[in-house]
């Protein structure tokens, strides 16, 4: 029997090979046949989840409620110390210094990342901006969000903090951060589907011991973090409830 593993499509491109290496490590450790399927976008990934094709997922927090409540997934781990934060950014030459100064009709550039977009739109609320009175500009990645700002084709960009921090110093010198979220409790998580749940504890133990051996450390390094941290059911339920309050 073969299982399918997938990663939230908002993974950093630099870590693509890291996920393949991780999957190879996981197969060797568990003795299970696990196929890594990378979907190009959230829509196709969600269709695969709905069709019960996915058994293991590194999930975006926005999808956690659907995975737990509709598809019976349970949390395993998250990257230690990591959380998703969003930034509201404008062109450095823009005279605006406070979000509250933004007006209806503001052109807002963002990627498809659902949790970052949600946090970003919440940070625009002090200006009475919402999906009904902004001009949305969709971009394939954060470098393109930055380009829209630099070319004055967008007034505001919503960034994943990590992606903004990774932009070149030259690009950042031409941009201005208005707000950086400090939410701390919204994070991606590795989650396990119903077909694999009898292995939950074993897999969790394997993942938690990864940082203790050299090979495991190397695999984690390729993912961009140094260890996993357990996510228990209540922590996941708390995050789902929190996302639910924000999604209003």
């Amino acid at each position: 029997m073969s299982f399918q593993f997938t990663v939230s499509p908002d993974f950093t491109p630099d870590h693509l090979s890291g996920w393949y290496i991780f999957n190879t490590w996981l197969q060797k450790q568990t003795g299970l046949a696990i196929h890594l399927e990378m979907y190009n976008d959230f829509h196709s990934q969600r269709s695969a989840i709905q069709a019960n094709h996915v058994d293991l997922i590194y999930a975006n927090p926005f999808d956690a409620a659907m995975l737990v409540r509709e598809r019976g997934f349970l949390p395993l781990v998250k990257a230690e110390g990591a959380s998703d934060e969003a930034l509201i950014v404008v062109n450095a030459a823009n005279p605006v210094i406070d979000v509250a100064e933004l007006q209806s009709g503001t052109r807002v550039a963002f990627t498809e990342d659902p949790d970052v977009r949600l946090m970003g739109m919440i940070m625009l609320e002090p200006a009475d901006l919402d999906n009904g009175n902004i001009v949305p500009i969709s971009a394939d990645n954060y470098v393109l969000v930055a380009k829209q700002l630099l070319k004055n084709q967008a007034d505001v960009g919503i960034f994943l903090a990590e992606a903004y921090d990774d932009l070149s110093a030259m690009i950042k010198s031409q941009l201005k951060v208005l707000v950086r979220s400090q939410i701390s409790v919204i994070h991606h998580a590795l989650m396990i589907g119903p077909k694999l749940q009898d292995q939950r504890e074993d897999i969790q133990n394997l993942l938690m011991s990864m940082s203790a051996d050299e090979k495991g450390q190397g695999v984690l390094k390729n993912l961009g973090f140094s260890s996993w941290q357990i996510v228990d059911d209540e922590e996941m339920e708390f995050m789902i409830d929190l996302m639910d309050t924000l999604n209003t």
Binding site: M123, E125, P126, D128, E237, D241, L242, T245, L246
Partner: peptide, 26 residues
Amino acid sequence: KATVIPNVRAGKVVGFTSVRRKPSRT
């Protein structure tokens, strides 16, 4: 700006979570 939701666990309300965010001046 406050949002309050019931925390439902195993079909039972075990508490409430309240999340507040910055309101607009208007």
